[in-house]
Design a protein around this nucleic acid. Sequence first.
DNA 1: GTTTATATTTAGATTAATCTAAAAAGAAAT
DNA 2: ATTTCTTTTTAGATTAATCTAAATATAAAC
Lengths: 224, 224
Amino acid sequence: MESRPVSQAVEDYVKAICLLEQQEGKATTKALAVALDVAAPSVTAMIKRLHAMRLVRHTRYRGVALTPSGRRMALEVIRHHRLLELYLVEALGLPWDQVHEEAERLEHVISEELEERIAERLGHPVADPHGDPIPTKGGEVDQSAYLPLSELNPGTAAVIKRVADQAPAKLRYLGDLGLFPEVRVTLLEKAPFGGPMSLEVGETRCTLGGDLARQIYVLPVESL
Amino acid sequence: MESRPVSQAVEDYVKAICLLEQQEGKATTKALAVALDVAAPSVTAMIKRLHAMRLVRHTRYRGVALTPSGRRMALEVIRHHRLLELYLVEALGLPWDQVHEEAERLEHVISEELEERIAERLGHPVADPHGDPIPTKGGEVDQSAYLPLSELNPGTAAVIKRVADQAPAKLRYLGDLGLFPEVRVTLLEKAPFGGPMSLEVGETRCTLGGDLARQIYVLPVESL
DNA sequence: GTTTATATTTAGATTAATCTAAAAAGAAAT
DNA sequence: ATTTCTTTTTAGATTAATCTAAATATAAAC
Ligand SMILES: [Mn+2]
Ligand SMILES: [Mn+2]
Ligand SMILES: [Mn+2]
Ligand SMILES: [Mn+2]
């Protein structure tokens, strides 16, 4: 019954499976290979190990699904990751485009004790700097669904709730424009067919491409 | 010429070698095996790898010595470790007996950027919570030598400068007595042959065994 | 419904890091 | 100077995690 500590690789796999299940509805070998930047046969090999550890169920050629204990592990890692991202921004002033990479490594090595201190210091926050929900210790995740900024009607005001793009360069760009979660914006004009839109952010205005706008999720102010 | 990131194991080995060179004057296979809690043949195998990486020089049956680049790497890891220990105590309130274990893992995963932010937040400190010197970015280490508390003359006052024992239980005990670095104590009485001693700490007094007293280093106040 | 493209798995190899058992070297004791 | 003890090294095996090349299964296109 000796269960030795789980490796970083295993944690990254269950985390990736969990995120894929949420975002795509299922986790395939290919999607995991892309997400983790490894070759497909490496994924197949790891899936066998994860199955032996009872962390996933696997149907050949059909992808994997987390077991309850796999999900518990994944949410624990995701909680670490998002708490760390927020801590690095709030307590140490790291820019929001650098914290993902840092948290990617730190998430595997902090103790439960340290996790708790960080959560306490932050006032038990519910979202990370990008607006992604922080799972509770009990494994609950806020499921609120928001509207892509690209779907907002011109003339409407809304509060940014989530920035789904991870790419540092894009985050830096959005940061320069002042587009963070909890910031209020007003959509002025929108070109058709997913074209660019012009926004009012505080005192200033800016133009945003359709691709970026599709990655920004908002809550229209009427809904408040 | 692609030099892939160094593993945690390699970092722990060069760190252990560096500390042994300082404390014992040399780093033998056996001493490393004990320090790292691995079997002796594992050390021999790793020494070969470290040699291939030009981090150590090795004379068969005689132990290893760090090369300049090995020492640079070791001091970098030690800097991380000690900065982290201090940060965990100062910024997050972890008890000083728990931070060693935590830093042992974190030291390998923080970026140079994060290291710098932490150092800045702490005001570029020169010692960790146990009084161990924090190497500078340039690789300089404070070499001050202090007096073991066990060698202090009765009736003399001194400031604690370093607590060399790592054992959490002992650190907790010393902490309860208020015996931390930078605390001023007065030696009242001392039993002969390394026996116990009685101390004045602030308003209170306490008795300390000879073994513990030998691990506490002080600076007598006359020297100030 | 075949053919073609894509995804998945198997086969086989590699590397880092560890282990135990046994041989060899060096140090200490007689 | 031998003998004995300790340390170090070799030999050989194991496990996790990865890779490339090739085989096989599924899905898409025609
Ligand atoms: Mn990770
Ligand atoms: Mn995030
Ligand atoms: Mn370590
Ligand atoms: Mn320390």
